[in-house]
Simulated scan of single mutants.
Amino acid sequence: MNKNKEKGNILEESIRHFFLSEGFYVVRGIILSIDTDTITDIDLLLFKKISPLVRNKANVDIRNRKRPQTFERMLWTSGIKSLLGYDNCYLVSTEARPSMFRFAKNHGISLIAEPLTSYIENKYKKENLRLSEEEFCEKIRLISEQDQKEITSFKIYTYCREILPHEFNFDNLNQILNQIKEIFNLYIIQNKSENTVRVLYLTVSFFLLILDFILKDFYSLGKDDSSKQLSSIIRFGNNGKKQSELMLNRMTKLFNTISNSVQPELFDTVREKANDQWNKIPAEIISDFYTQEIHKNAIFDYAITFENLAYSTNLKTLSELTPNQKSILYNLCDFLNIDRKKM
């Protein structure tokens, strides 16, 4: 690694620790992509719980160069915020000019500049309780990464992170749940290896983060209503029950038209099997758990806790977790039909 890159990584990690200390959920080095096209990278992605009804999402651009091109990067950072619908954006620069602060203030950009930048770097650069992103990736990479067809911890890590820059929706939640099942299976197959434990904790934290952002919209509902809403999300995703049934009706009628025969009993059979598949999803296991008063106000904190567990230099095994942390994992095991005893 060249010295400039290494210096940039140190500053990024220091800024990450600064925002973590302020109660943010922080993800570093996010790749923004649409389908198979890579657009850009985001140095830090921030998530914050402001109140039971309000969440905040922000992007951070960090410039640690002799010529940081601060004004150009402010335009870029503000553009990312506007395009992705974030609430705030930050620019961290290693220079300081009065015109920079005026421009940032006039355009809604939060600017961290000298001498604060150096103060943050000096305060947090020797932090040794957490792995850096580079150290984390080194821990979870395996020789098997060369096999493009095989599911690995690193591929699960990469897939889940690609979801985070975009607007959270119900399908995202189900995608993360599918990845949690994959990492649970790897955890069992690989005999509880370090890489699977770390990615399990991190993937669970992503699930909790997205769940918290979704459930804020149900905060004013009673437990029964919010539980029903969450169950529907898990079963039907973004489409919802009514839209899913409507699509099923249209597909069945189209099939009958193509087959040039009227088979009303076929529609009943397809509808029955589809409903049977939907009903087999044990959504209430998750919805009943997280709509309890003891949990619903703490989901964001749970997300931060599991993220900290994933990056800790002193990795805890599942047996060393607190009873509450274990209950979160066991709840997911029950939903995903994974034997708790194998944990």
Rank of each mutant, 00 (worst) to 15 (best):
M1E: 13
N2L: 11
I10A: 07
E12I: 05
E13K: 04
I15H: 01
R16Y: 10
H17F: 12
F19V: 01
L20K: 10
L20N: 11
S21R: 00
E22V: 02
G23L: 02
F24N: 10
F24C: 09
I31L: 08
T38E: 11
T38K: 06
D41L: 00
L46K: 01
L46W: 07
K48W: 03
S51V: 00
P52E: 02
V60A: 03
R65C: 01
R67I: 09
Q69I: 00
F71A: 05
F71L: 13
E72Y: 05
R73S: 10
R73W: 04
W76I: 05
T77G: 07
L83M: 05
L83G: 00
G85Y: 07
Y86F: 15
H107F: 15
I112R: 02
A113K: 08
P115H: 03
T117N: 01
K125R: 13
K126D: 14
N128K: 08
N128M: 06
E133M: 12
E134M: 04
E138D: 15
R141A: 15
L142V: 14
S144M: 06
I151K: 09
T152F: 02
F154K: 06
F154Y: 15
Y159H: 08
R161E: 12
I163Q: 04
H166M: 04
E167P: 00
F170E: 15
D171S: 12
N172R: 01
I176L: 09
I176R: 01
K181G: 15
E182V: 05
N185H: 14
N185T: 15
L186A: 06
L186I: 04
T196H: 03
V204Q: 05
V204A: 13
F207T: 09
I214G: 01
G222K: 04
K223E: 14
K223Q: 14
D224H: 09
D225W: 05
S231D: 12
I233S: 07
N239R: 05
K241N: 05
Q243E: 08
L248P: 07
F255P: 05
T257I: 14
I258V: 14
S261V: 11
P264L: 08
F267H: 08
V270E: 13
V270M: 12
R271H: 14
N279D: 15
I281G: 03
I285C: 08
I286S: 01
F289P: 07
I294S: 15
A298I: 12
L309I: 09
T313Y: 04
N314P: 03
L318P: 03
E320G: 14
T322W: 02
Q325E: 15
S327A: 01
S327P: 02
I328W: 03
D334L: 03
F335L: 12
N337V: 12
R340D: 05
K341R: 10
